[in-house]
């Protein structure tokens, strides 16, 4: 289970949160002008990254506020937590060596409090 550092409440167990999927997907300004493919891209297509992913979380059993998390999906390591309106931080993640290889550090349970 992940330990997530809610920017409003502090570190809590993941069970209190719900994940809202990929972050920074902008709703198209003029939906009627979009082609079916563009609309499908907005609605359904996802990067589904193996490695550093920016995603939305909601502290649904706490303050009920939304925020963003930068997490390495290959290791579950949480690298940063930032506010919902902030731009994604510049981060170096421990990405897998080859595109679909396995990371060196394996998949542990990581805390968000980094030294």
């Amino acid at each position: 289970m992940l330990l997530i550092n809610c920017p409003y409440c502090g570190e809590r167990e993941q069970e209190e949160f719900s994940c809202g999927g990929e972050a920074h997907i902008e709703r198209p300004k003029n939906p009627p002008e979009l082609s079916d493919d563009q609309w499908a891209d907005y609605l359904f297509l996802r990067q589904n990254i193996k490695g550093l992913q920016f995603e939305r979380w909601n502290h649904s059993f706490g303050c009920r506020k939304w925020f963003n998390v930068a997490r390495n999906t290959a290791t579950d390591e949480i690298l940063a937590v930032y506010h919902i309106d902030e731009k994604p931080p510049q981060l170096e993640s421990n990405d897998p060596i080859t595109p679909c290889g396995e990371p060196k550090i394996g998949s542990g349970n990581f805390s968000t409090t980094k030294k």
Binding site: M1, L2, E13, Q14, E15, S18, C19, G21, N48, I49, K50, Q53, E55, R71, T73, A74, T75, D76, S107
Partner: peptide, 13 residues
Amino acid sequence: DGYNSYTQRGGFN
């Protein structure tokens, strides 16, 4: 589990 991951392990909950 309710989030994307490639770790081949999930949460204890």
